[in-house]
Nucleic acid binder design. Structure first.
Length: 161
DNA sequence: GCCAACGTTGGC
DNA sequence: GCCAACGTTGGC
């Protein structure tokens, strides 16, 4: 399977790219996803080595901030089993887990952020889910081309500033 | 802070 | 299995 690419959303106030950079080995597990579509992607589709665009939502402006990679494939999200956890789900049984997560490692913080407006205005990115109205999926696929374009936009932004 | 979009829940 | 009610996401 060729390397694939994904976009993962997080609210910077909750868990931002800098938090990932601060982790040992710049690696952490992506817990707390409680959406079946996103779960399926993490459980079934994300593979070690896949590229990830790290996106900050619910901030002004929303933007892509960095690049990460998948370092561990889907495994049960243990935070669903612990009633002390914010993301506890009584319906997820350790013998038959409902929720899964992956581990990602920060690869690089982009030299400049790429705001959502810029993603929307680039004709090469019109099919990106994140640019489409009402698209809330927190883990979504992107194409190799889209991934590359976003990285290039970040570099161009840095050069222009 | 608002609210549109969308996912989930639960009564029937 | 439908669908109304409700909760959440997330841009604006």
């Amino acid at each position: 399977m060729a390397k694939r690419y994904w976009l993962m959303k997080s609210e910077p106030d909750v868990y931002g790219f800098d938090d990932l950079l601060a982790e040992p080995n710049q690696t952490d597990h992506w817990d707390g996803v409680r959406n079946y579509q996103a779960r399926n992607i993490m459980r079934d589709e994300m593979k070690v080595g896949d590229g990830v665009l790290f996106y900050h939502s619910n901030t002004k402006p929303p933007h892509v901030v960095g690049v990460a990679e998948v370092v561990r494939e889907g495994y049960p999200d243990h935070t669903a089993f612990d009633s002390n956890e914010k993301y506890y789900d009584a319906k997820s049984d350790p013998d038959n887990p409902r929720w899964y997560m992956v581990d990602i490692r920060a690869v690089e913080k982009l030299p400049a952020i790429v705001p959502l407006d810029q993603l929307k205005s680039d004709e090469r990115l019109v099919d990106m889910k994140v640019t489409q109205r009402g698209q809330r999926l927190s883990v979504q696929p992107v194409t190799a081309t889209e991934f590359q374009v976003v990285v290039e936009l970040a570099k161009a932004n840095a050069d222009a500033s």
